[in-house]
């Protein structure tokens, strides 16, 4: 009796599965192992398929990126003043300087505060750490890693148009 092989599945030591090769008889243990792998794979695919829309859902929706084009009345921006508008979802500062209109992405490259226009010194000042930029966007003082990013701007008869 002891010489007859035990039916598979009753006493397989863990970690040593391949004990019955070359059998044509369906082997429930191997069958279960195969199906378990299928289940694992399909479950993984299902998980990814379920997570994908959730991730996409919390991404900023297309419209939230903001207008690609902002128009300002010239009359509302007299010489020497500035205005900050949202352009492409970012605060953008428009200044009517003595040399004409300028527009910059108002986010300071240092730590993300929003710069202000200072008419007296003809410069853009970051209120957080004393950063200072010239009308050309270049760094003139403070711990600033780089210049401000210029924003495309055009002027028509009575409007300032930010963006293309």
């Amino acid at each position: 009796m002891s010489s007859t092989p035990k039916p598979p599945g009753t006493d397989v030591p863990p970690g040593k599965p391949r004990k019955s090769p070359g059998k044509t008889r369906p082997d429930p243990v191997r069958r279960r192992r195969f199906l378990r792998k299928c289940l694992g794979a399909l479950g993984g695919v299902g998980f990814l398929m379920a997570v994908y829309p959730l991730i996409r859902y919390i991404e900023p929706p297309p419209e939230a990126e903001g207008a690609n084009r902002v128009e300002i009345d010239k009359a509302s921006l007299p010489p020497g003043t500035s205005r900050t508008v949202i352009y492409r979802g970012r605060p953008t500062i428009v200044v009517n300087t003595s040399d004409g209109y300028i527009a910059y992405n108002a986010v300071c490259p240092h730590l993300g505060c929003v710069v202000k226009w200072e008419g007296g010194t003809q410069s853009l000042i970051c209120p957080c750490h004393g950063g200072k930029f010239g009308t050309d966007g270049s760094v003139q003082g403070g711990p600033i890693p780089g210049p401000l990013t210029a924003v495309e701007l055009s002027v028509s008869d009575d409007k300032i148009i930010i963006g293309a």
Binding site: G9, L39, G46
Partner: peptide
């Protein structure tokens, strides 16, 4: 339909697995 297909296949595999249980 991708989801429906996946669910149906998954259900089928579970069914087979259940039948293969000791």
């Amino acid at each position: 339909w991708m989801f429906i297909g996946l669910f149906l296949v998954l259900a089928g595999v579970i069914w087979l697995y259940r039948r293969a249980l000791p």
